[in-house]
Design a protein around this nucleic acid. Sequence first.
DNA 1: CGTTTTTTTGAGAGCGGTCAATGATGGTGG
DNA 2: CCACCATCATTGACCGCTCTCAAAAAAACG
Lengths: 224, 224
Amino acid sequence: MYIERNMTAATTGLLQGGRTVEILQTVQLPGFVMSFTKDEEIFGEGETANFVYRVVSGSVRIYRILEDGRRQISSFCFPGDVFGLELDAVHGASAEAVTACEVALVTQNTLQRAAACDRTAASLLLRLTCRQLCEAREHMVVLGRKTAMERLVTFLRDMAVRSECGCLVKLPMSRADIADFLGLTIETVSRTLTQLERTGQLTLESTREIRLSRSLLADGEAVH
Amino acid sequence: MYIERNMTAATTGLLQGGRTVEILQTVQLPGFVMSFTKDEEIFGEGETANFVYRVVSGSVRIYRILEDGRRQISSFCFPGDVFGLELDAVHGASAEAVTACEVALVTQNTLQRAAACDRTAASLLLRLTCRQLCEAREHMVVLGRKTAMERLVTFLRDMAVRSECGCLVKLPMSRADIADFLGLTIETVSRTLTQLERTGQLTLESTREIRLSRSLLADGEAVH
DNA sequence: CGTTTTTTTGAGAGCGGTCAATGATGGTGG
DNA sequence: CCACCATCATTGACCGCTCTCAAAAAAACG
């Protein structure tokens, strides 16, 4: 009951807080928030999708695993990102905390009811999902058609843009996470980063901090 | 004017014809229909998304290309499939006719207006997009984590299910299309098919017709 | 029936994977 | 505070899957 009331508050914040996807993705959510420890499961593939989630702090990985343990991370979610939206269905992927994180959540029912009343809200949800689909297609190009070197460069540029940290990128995830996101092995990720450092395109300040050179951040796709 | 009236009719058919995604995806659409010849462009990446499309007959490929010509097909659309939905945005991918085809279309504006009036319609659109996102994630696993052999088997099984042709799968697309969908080369696609035939898992009746064995259609993932 | 395009097949090379060992890093308890 | 241990990251040697390049075979087309 307490939770229900708070989730409604969260919904209100989610839907009325912003009239555009941009606002929806950056505004802080009031209401029901859960905390997860590093590597803790948020939901599992096949579970009924009761909630829609939104990252408040920390980061989250969305992934699927094959029977033999091979894992493919389809996306990382950072503060402002919404995930877990699967209308009237079960979750088609699992979600785990990459780092300790806080996640705001709303029941899918509440969200549907709100969307039914507010046409702008419904439109927002659809736009949000369309954008995720577009990003998914973009990532398919990476997985299907790019070399290891190109995958890493694409990833680092994307992280630089998303974290808005200029050229010093702080990675919340391990090499294994990066490998499973890019469809590579940890060894190849490590070797490729080393190679990029040797050719002066970046500096590995620490394992989780990478300083990108201007040339690497530029749009020029000619990376060898 | 004529077109506008007909597109409204199409919208009505699209949204009231079915109350579930299943119905939406199988029902024939009345209204404004366009025909495309083999390999003709339906829309291009970067174009303003004015319409939402639905395959009536034939098949369509959705893809992105890199500057140097590498192509990644993110999905094939068959009769009943909806594509091109990108709310208030430009198309994030291109669409081409794989075979000569008929496509029903509705303006995005009309669709939004209809969705604003009919909460079920809005819900349908969202559900539709969620499903596509789920399929995209599934395909990422194929592209990032499966071997050439596993990719072909996954593809053939999927085609068998979608075409509902039992074990005789008719492929509307070329080897190049299959290669660009699976993140392989045409040579690898061809060689892998030959290998599957030599091991008795399928019969290449003709280039575009493949008879799958029972064992290959079964869920057993142990394919070598 | 000839031409063009698509598909298959072959030979060889290279990219990324596997296996293994070494080197960092970080957390825990003495 | 430091020693210890477990985990994570890097590096090396080698292998194999898939790509590249090339040619032949088959299919599609006019």
